[in-house]
């Protein structure tokens, strides 16, 4: 095996005495300072995005994992069949589902179940996306909302209504329950 013996650089006396190295260092820091300062004065800082005024929402990647939410299909049916897989896989145990039966006079009676209550505690949620991954019905999705705030713990628990509000309608994919098929 070829070994390379790395030689220590031979420093000149002025480098050893911190004279030229100090000047070099000051040049670098001062250069950065002047460059950034001129950018700030020109109101165009290249690196920092000033958050509430500028957001990178439009540049969020496709795979961005934001707040999880429930979706309905194109006929406004709740996709969730309350199988509770997401509840069981959720690592921080943020999801709580109370399953309910669909009454027999409902046009979607053959789906049999839908959640009576569906709560995600956004204080606990770690945005891992396991719920999305595990869902057999593609009913839960991680959206691109990331600024989830609230003034109380209660406000931070998203109930079913809020989850559908965030999620909206999702067309396509699983057509198992659609009349069209």
């Amino acid at each position: 095996m070829a070994t390379i013996i790395v030689k220590r650089p031979q420093l000149a006396w002025h480098e050893k005495a911190f004279i030229s190295t100090l000047i070099k260092g000051l040049k670098i820091t001062l250069g950065h300072a002047i460059k950034t300062l001129s950018q700030i004065i020109g109101r165009k800082p290249k690196v920092t995005m000033e958050y509430p005024e500028e957001k990178w929402d439009s540049n969020l990647p496709e795979y961005y994992r934001g707040a999880p939410a429930l979706v309905t299909d194109e006929q406004d049916r709740e996709r969730c069949v309350s199988c509770q897989l997401c509840e069981f896989i959720c690592p921080p145990k943020a999801i709580k589902i109370t399953p309910g039966e669909i009454p027999s006079d409902d046009p979607w009676a053959k789906v049999e179940k839908r959640p009576k209550e569906f709560e995600i505690d956004m204080i606990r949620c770690i945005y891992c996306g396991m719920c999305e991954e595990v869902c057999p019905e593609q009913a839960i999705y991680l959206r691109k909302d990331y600024a989830i705030t609230g003034l109380s713990r209660k406000e931070m628990v998203h109930d079913k209504k809020r989850l559908y509000e965030i999620g909206g309608k999702r067309i396509g994919l699983v057509n198992k329950w659609n009349e069209l098929k």
Partner: peptide
């Protein structure tokens, strides 16, 4: 502020 501009940041503004 000065440390911020040295490190290409904006600093408290």
């Amino acid at each position: 502020r000065f440390s911020a501009v040295i490190q290409d940041r904006v600093g408290p503004n």
